[in-house]
Design a protein around this nucleic acid. Sequence first.
DNA 1: GTGTTTGTTATCAA
DNA 2: CTTGATAACAAACA
Length: 293
Amino acid sequence: MPELPEVETVRRDLAAQLLNKKIKSIEVLHAGMIGSDAGQFSKSLGGASLIDISRRGKLLIFKASRPDLFLLAHLKMTGQLIYLSKDKVSIGGHSLSSHSFEKAVGGELPNKHTRIIINFNDSSRLFFNDLRKFGYMKLVSSSELDKIIARNYGPEPLEKTFVFKDFFQKLQARRITIKAALLDQKTVAGLGNIYVDEVLFASGVRPMRLASSVKKEEAVKIYKNIKKILALAIKNRGTTFSNYVDSSGKRGNFSQKLKVYGKANKPCPNCGLPIIKTKVAGRGTHYCPHCQS
DNA sequence: GTGTTTGTTATCAA
DNA sequence: CTTGATAACAAACA
């Protein structure tokens, strides 16, 4: 499940690799993954290059070298963006440099989950794989992009726009669980199921508590832990739980640092009591009955 | 065949 | 009008 740290890792890696490379061709293997007609999509991007990559929450934003053209990419639950430069393309499937990649992805690309391929002039390729086809790529203008961001996204947790006072006010105004409030991208952008559970554990707050019942001191802890845990997860190149891999096909290291997510019935790292797994906001939810109140 | 996995949106109810 | 709860989406696995 790519959340902010995973998407940010992909963004940084891709920015270091493919910026300003001319797009030779585009292969749309599954038309449902793009908003527009495949021919139009290819025509709009073909011959252009991607000159900047930014991110809003879990949304990747590629700026194209054409006036007023942006390529949006959302990985949703099982999307992968994998970039192979020409020296990493394995010939016959046995080149040394592709070994770790193949181990992580499970074979050569494209595979049966490859939905879109962007071919660059220097023979490098960007593969958009998505087992469950929830993800998408979409071409938009800057005004469309602004609208999408304004409608769907609250502040970026690692930027100055994430202000405690506003955050606390939002929590107080909501009569939903604190978990649901943190999953809402308008409260703060980029948290998903894994990091919400981790943040609430670190903050000592039970996920099923009403958001409006969270005291100021608790909200301070949640606010600080959002920043701390996301930053640490980025440092560790994200969490691989199901099938997330970075743009080189490698797994994230933060998986080893998870304290409650996926730890049902395992001892709490603080007190040793078994971690409880239940359902909150329609999602699998993990917490310690002793350390979180 | 059943239940589970989750990011986001559509849909419905209050 | 707003707010919130839930189903739906799609594919794979236990």
